[in-house]
Each structure stands twice: as structure tokens, then as C-alpha cells.
Design a protein around this nucleic acid. Structure first.
Length: 149
DNA sequence: GCCAACGTTGGC
DNA sequence: GCCAACGTTGGC
């Protein structure tokens, strides 16, 4: 079963929000590479929940993919910040997935720590200038990150 | 708030 | 198809 990492701004949607709700929809992804990864996800896949654009960027917990990707409804909603005027019911290029809560880490595994880990050097997350918000995590990377808790 | 790095748009 | 201009991401 593949592993993933997904970024969210905690002010927008945090691991605590997911914990309280128990489930949620991962939508608003507007980047083709990230979208293509969403489409590869399978129910049961686990992902690291990363907090970005905040005081302490880093991995805050774990979630689970609840089902495979489907057209992102926010692209069709004129009131959504993720509205895509080019999208229609018949032609919606964006995808969303449903997710569930698994775990909230006691402490965030901070970005500086992730950058220091030699086992994670290949990850897009730690590459300079990378903005990819959805990315695969290899088995060995997953284990290395779990060991940093 | 700043700004480097990146992806997308649109004129040509 | 090129590429300059623009808007966005995201760390700091």
C-alpha cells in the first residue's frame, strides 16, 4: 500500500480539524502533478499530514485515504476560493479525495528536522523551491519519518 | 511582510 | 511553440 504526504495550511484545515471531524475532503488542489498523485491514491493508503505556511511547518499526524479520487466539487462552486471558471459538470479537470483521521502526533516533526535526515534527501518536500503539495513517500522514507517521532 | 522559486497564462 | 509577465506557494 502506497504512502503519501499532503500539505495543508492549518488555518485552513489542520490535523486537529480532521481529528474533530473524523473525516474530510481533500480538495482545492490546483496543480497537475499533485492532482495526478491524488488520482493514484487507493482506499486505505496512509498519508502524513503536513502543516504549511504556519509558525511551525512540519508533519503533524497521519490520515488515511477513504476512497479513490473524484471530480473536485469546489472547482464548480463560484463561491469557493478554488473555483475554476473553466470547469463544468461535464468537464472538470480537478480531483479530490476523501480522507479519514488516524493519528495526531504529540509534537510536530519540524521541517528543519526533516531536512536534516539523510534518508529523506530525495523527497520533493525538502528540495529547495519545491511547492508540490501532494507527493509520494517511499516505504523507507515512511519508516524514517516514523522513527523521528 | 518579504521574496525566491515555481507553474500558468496569453500574446505573438 | 516561445517566453515574458503574472500570480501563487511557502519558508523565513
Amino acid at each position: 500500500m502506497p504512502y503519501w504526504l499532503m500539505k495543508s495550511e492549518p488555518e485552513e484545515f489542520s490535523i486537529l480539524d480532521l481529528k474533530e471531524l473524523g473525516a474530510g475532503r481533500w480538495d482545492g488542489v490546483r496543480n497537475y502533478q499533485a492532482r495526478n498523485f491524488l488520482r493514484q491514491m487507493i482506499r486505505g493508503d496512509l498519508f502524513f499530514f503536513y502543516h504549511s505556511s504556519c509558525a511551525t511547518p512540519g508533519i503533524a499526524g497521519v490520515g488515511r485515504i477513504a476512497g479513490s479520487a473524484y471530480p473536485d466539487p469546489t472547482a464548480l462552486d463560484p463561491n469557493s476560493p478554488y473555483y475554476d471558471p473553466k470547469a463544468s459538470e461535464a468537464k472538470n479537470r480537478w480531483s479530490a479525495v476523501d480522507v479519514g483521521f488516524v493519528e495526531h502526533f504529540d509534537a510536530v516533526i519540524t521541517l528543519p528536522r526533516l531536512k536534516q535526515a539523510p534518508a529523506l534527501a530525495q523527497m520533493s518536500l525538502v528540495q529547495k523551491g519545491s511547492r508540490l503539495s501532494v507527493m509520494p513517500v517511499s516505504e523507507s522514507e515512511w519508516q524514517a519519518i516514523q522513527a523521528m517521532r
